[in-house]
Design a protein around this nucleic acid. Structure first.
Lengths: 158, 158
DNA sequence: TAAGATTGATAAATCAATCTTA
DNA sequence: TAAGATTGATTTATCAATCTTA
């Protein structure tokens, strides 16, 4: 008398979809574990991804990149600033805007994070050339995330 | 004078990894948009995934499945109960445990959610048979997420 | 007025006690 | 005592005002 589970499409595409999904979940779990090791949250990662040490970025622009509203951005930057990861800078051209840059520490943290994220996982390195090429050829026909929010993980809980 | 971005490995595996990553991000964005349409959060999804209408599940077990502690589970179930999605039931065998089931509404919501998640996206349906088979063959050599937490999305913000 | 940003209040997630029953 | 669950306090995330300058 189990709840009827909606049957996923039993098609070739459906099978491939479930495989992709399973691999995706594994990736997510690994990223989570890695962040914990580094003492970072998903929110921190989301923040670091769109910040830079040499290009001050206005709050308004950050909110857009993070797909949140201005107040959310303010709180986020407040916390990052307290931890010494970022710095606010007044803009001389328009005294309304405050732009944010990574500090030395923030830049270093981001660098370490990216190094680990960019590293292809073992099982991909273990695939033979033919499999990798087949995989790459098929993936090339699929779209990827548009916009900069591509590198933003959700914290979006509501 | 841009911050040096760590160079992702320029290898075949590295390329494939970036492609996979881009496709994952797109998937995530789509799921987020879909949830908003349904008035659900990532947390709601995480909750629904491990609950069932006919198999009462103790709080302790829920906490394990959600990879959180017992108190987190309590708060979560409190909120779901207020919204009429779940119900707590005392267990006669051990009066310490309270087990949770989906209500009619909760089961319906989960059904709708799963229907949409299981649906392979257009671009996969559009791939020709050869590409799908190649993709499937390569993916079969990759691991997937272990355990039930496989279906848990992060809310893990700390 | 409108754009940029902050503040205050509410909801949610997390951690450290506390309470209840086996 | 230990397992199961809840409560209280703190940190984050979100929404609705508010403040400042163009």
């Amino acid at each position: 008398v189990a709840t009827r589970q909606p049957q996923a499409q039993v098609t070739l595409a459906g099978d491939v979809w479930r495989q992709l999904h399973g691999y995706f979940q594994l990736h997510r779990q690994r990223v989570h574990a890695m962040l914990q090791e580094m003492g970072l949250s998903f929110g921190d990662m989301r923040a670091l991804m769109v910040l830079d040490a040499d290009h001050p970025r206005p709050m308004r622009s950050l909110a857009d990149a993070w797909a949140c509203d201005a107040s959310n951005a303010t709180w986020m930057v407040d916390r990052l600033e307290q931890r010494g990861l970022v710095e606010r800078r007044m803009q001389p051209t328009d005294r309304r805007v405050k732009a944010v840059v990574l500090t030395e520490l923030g830049a270093k943290t981001k660098r370490q994070l990216l190094e680990r994220l960019d590293q292809p996982p073992e099982e991909l390195l273990a695939l033979d050339r033919a499999d990798l090429e087949a995989l790459g050829a098929a993936l090339e026909k699929l779209p990827t995330a548009p916009s900069e929010a591509a590198d933003c993980w959700p914290s979006a809980n509501r």
